[in-house]
Design a protein around this nucleic acid. Structure first.
Lengths: 113, 113
DNA sequence: TTCGCATATGACGATTTCTTCATGTTAGGC
DNA sequence: GCCTAACATGAAGAAATCGTCATATGCGAA
């Protein structure tokens, strides 16, 4: 299976495109977490959490290892932190854009064009 | 509509989670492009391209302006480049992981566990 | 004004993703 | 061994996404 680069990239981003998976990665970016810790931190059904973790595993973004009865997850690619940070930056940029746009449209005073 | 931050972040990444949209953004990261230029560079139906551009517009990632009969698109959030670069880094990390794993599994020599 | 090119929009079936529920597996306490 | 807790997996319906087709709009040339 020869996957073009841009398609692999799209799949990577799509893997991040889910609220639960984002939260998981952000928690793992802080420190390793056991599944039950993630479960406490995120509002989600246990089986759903397992599914989302499986998605991240298949994508190669996280790894697991057993510690007695619990399973601990960690980021297997540290650079994921960069992505999350960059994502936050973009969000802020977009939101402030929207705010200034809103501010521009709302008041009585108008600008040309 | 009060959107939690992690959900907005997930939507941002989902917006990037499509091969055509990735290609569009990469082209726009180089320089502004008219729609027909994108059309030449990407293998895609014109109407499909318009749809993908609309998705990117709604997400606030690109902006358009008319120039005569053609429409020129540009990145409205320059930081998108950071995301693309970070994405490439992660891909490379994952791929080299897989390669070393493959190399480890393939040959006759075995390791414990 | 009429034509044709460049682009956008709407709608529809096909596929994919998501959530939930039921069930399976592993490990430690008794 | 038996029970329970901690996770994982499989299946199935609901919802979202994708690509295509038909159609609409904006603009310049003739």
């Amino acid at each position: 299976m020869v996957t073009p680069l841009y398609q692999a990239k799209a799949e990577l981003f799509r893997t991040l495109g889910h609220p639960a998976r984002i939260r998981i990665l952000e928690l793992l970016a802080e420190r390793n977490h056991a599944v039950h810790e993630l479960l406490d931190a995120i509002e989600i059904e246990p089986s759903n959490l397992s599914q989302q973790l499986a998605v991240l595993r298949r994508a190669g973004l996280v790894s697991q290892h057993r510690d007695g009865a619990t399973v601990v997850y960690s980021l297997s690619v540290p650079d994921v932190r960069d992505l999350l940070v960059a994502g936050r930056g973009i969000l802020l940029a977009i939101l402030s854009d929207q705010d200034s746009l809103r501010a521009e449209l709302r008041p009585a005073r108008r600008r040309s064009r």
